[in-house]
Design a binder for these strands. Structure first.
Lengths: 195, 195
DNA sequence: GTGGTTCTTGACCGGCCGGTCAAGTGGTCC
DNA sequence: GGACCACTTGACCGGCCGGTCAAGAACCAC
């Protein structure tokens, strides 16, 4: 498969199955150590299935990445659509992100890996820039409204993203703490840092 | 080489050279895609040299990791030895960490990769726990002194580490901003978040 | 059934990779 | 010079890996 292929519903399901299973294996064993043979045999199908749906192992990974980013963004947007207060929008965004990350441990791991290889990093970066732009907008609104101290909005937004991703990995995934508690702490810390 | 080997000064230098060069290549091309053959040929030596100094590619990576963690810790400790005020100790720690990370871009990348593979993660975790314990101590002192709001010290410490690592990667390495400016912003954000 | 398309199989391939090792090389101490 | 030891060489090996492909199977439309 080199281009977009026309898929029947059955085909679309297989594709989904491959992506989900591959993501889980990549997260558990690492991208490189997990072979294509391992993925297909784990699913009980022949190797040809893999290359019917994806042009290469790399391309599969990229598509997993893109899908994940889209899904995260949707989760963030969905929760802040009609919240007028910028600071409250930031809080809701933090909570939504944490919930999503908590539920998608595998994908968090894949994001982290993607950042370490030059050929995957660009895709990751594009997604992050979108998330950042959203956050920056709310921070700017907050500054205008006088709820947030003056400062470089991009730096503040990045700081928030840093708190979220680190707390998710270390406290929720690593130490198994409850997403709600961690989100409370993250919100308190970030809002304090913004004022 | 399976155990510790007795090395002459000349040997110790070669070992260092291998670790430094390998770290650079791993950071640039990724751990798995960088072959042992690539490392030794880049240094203009035979493959036997590599396996004279290291038992395996994995072991080399682990030693790079350990060395880096030690060096970072030294940099952090060195700067706060005789600072009595806990909040000021935190500030100095943030600044020292940022400077170190800024100067060791390659190692930051390797840390990030190490977190994604089960066999490297434990070593990384041990180092992080040490850094965390240091930070926690200062936060606790700060709470006792009434300079920091009451809260779970470990969560606050983790939040600080998250801000540091994210800002280093995104602003200093990615966008090329000056470490001093970023450190100023990080300090302001974190101290705000603590109060 | 027939023909067409989508999907599946798994043996096979070339190539590279981590790791080994027998054969050196060169310095040092006597 | 010769014995010893730290170090170096690079051809070689077994194995696995990403990817191909000719040969079907399954489903659908008519």
């Amino acid at each position: 498969m080199t281009e977009q292929r026309q898929l029947t519903p059955r085909g679309r399901e297989r594709r989904h199955q491959l992506m989900a299973y591959a993501a889980a294996r990549f997260a558990e064993g690492g991208f490189h150590p997990t072979s294509v043979a391992e993925i297909v045999s784990g699913l009980g199908v022949g190797k040809g299935v893999f290359y019917w749906y994806f042009a290469s192992k790399d391309q599969l990974f990229l598509e997993i990445l893109k899908d994940a980013q889209q899904d995260l963004r949707r989760a963030q947007q969905h929760v802040i659509v009609d919240e007028p207060d910028p600071v409250r929008r930031i809080e809701l965004g933090i909570r939504a992100s944490m919930t999503w990350f908590a539920e998608h441990r595998d994908l968090v791991n894949l994001f982290q890996f993607a950042a370490t290889e030059e050929r995957f990093a660009p895709v990751l970066r594009r997604g992050q820039e979108v998330a950042l732009a959203d956050a920056v907008k709310h921070v700017k609104d907050g500054i205008v409204a006088g709820e947030i101290r003056d400062g470089e909005p991009e730096v503040l937004a990045h700081a928030i993203l840093g708190v979220i991703s680190h707390l998710v990995r270390e406290l929720i995934h690593q130490r198994g703490e409850s997403p709600e508690d961690v989100a409370d702490a993250a919100v308190a810390f970030c809002l304090g840092g913004l004022r």
